[in-house]
Simulated scan of single mutants.
Amino acid sequence: MGAHKLILTDDFAEEFLLVAIHCSEEAYKVAFLLNQFATLHLKRSKVDLEYSNNGLEIAFPLFDYEDEMRYINYDLISNKCVAKSARVVSSGGLFDDENISEMVTTHLIPEYKQVDFFLKISTDAPSVAIRKIVTDINDIKQVISAYEVDTEQLKSKNNLIFD
């Protein structure tokens, strides 16, 4: 009997477009502005995007919108999360243990530490007006800049697969 060989191809890659947004506003305000100026209907997801990094539990706020007529999913995700790290330091005495806490900033996409938010656009349709979306976002007064990110060059692309 001959040996059967199965070859597994890497077909798990999710195709999406990514827009980087530089804005100093809070996540809910950015979602509101995108709804108002970019004609999206983003709503806060019931579940935040949660990760565990070096013992810290990190939650990134997530806003999503599914355009059922055009088969497009929009996800607005914050790139920065500030978490409080706590540790106990013993000074060698009987009662002198100290609790030290510090604020730790974690990035969802570490290659783009300056970016405040990402707008992930997932679709099977070949034509998405990405330039119009970027132009609409750049027209918002509170947004410093917005531009498309090449997803093929991202090292931490797996952090954006959260469906």
Rank of each mutant, 00 (worst) to 15 (best):
M1F: 12
M1S: 14
A3M: 12
A3F: 13
I7H: 11
D11H: 07
L17E: 11
I21P: 00
H22A: 05
A27M: 01
A27F: 00
Y28G: 01
N35W: 08
Q36F: 09
H41W: 04
L42M: 05
R44V: 09
S45P: 06
S45M: 06
D48K: 07
L49S: 08
S52Y: 13
N53T: 03
N53G: 00
N53Q: 09
N54C: 10
G55Y: 13
E57A: 09
I58C: 14
A59I: 03
A59L: 08
F60P: 01
P61M: 12
L62H: 11
F63Y: 15
Y65T: 07
M69Y: 15
R70D: 09
I72H: 02
N73R: 11
D75M: 07
D75R: 12
D75G: 03
I77E: 00
K80H: 14
C81T: 05
V82M: 10
A83T: 13
S85N: 15
A86S: 15
S90F: 01
L94H: 13
L94T: 12
F95H: 11
E98S: 10
E98C: 08
E102G: 05
M103N: 10
L108F: 07
I109N: 05
P110L: 05
E111R: 05
E111F: 06
K113N: 03
K113Y: 02
V115F: 05
D116R: 03
F117H: 01
F118R: 01
L119P: 03
T123F: 05
A125S: 15
S127K: 14
A129W: 01
I130R: 07
I130K: 08
R131F: 08
V134C: 06
T135W: 07
D136I: 00
I137F: 10
I137K: 06
N138D: 11
N138C: 12
D139N: 14
K141A: 09
I144R: 13
A146R: 04
Y147K: 11
E148Y: 04
D150W: 08
E152Y: 14
Q153I: 04
Q153G: 00
Q153M: 04
L154V: 09
K155F: 09
K155W: 05
S156E: 14
L160R: 02
F162W: 06
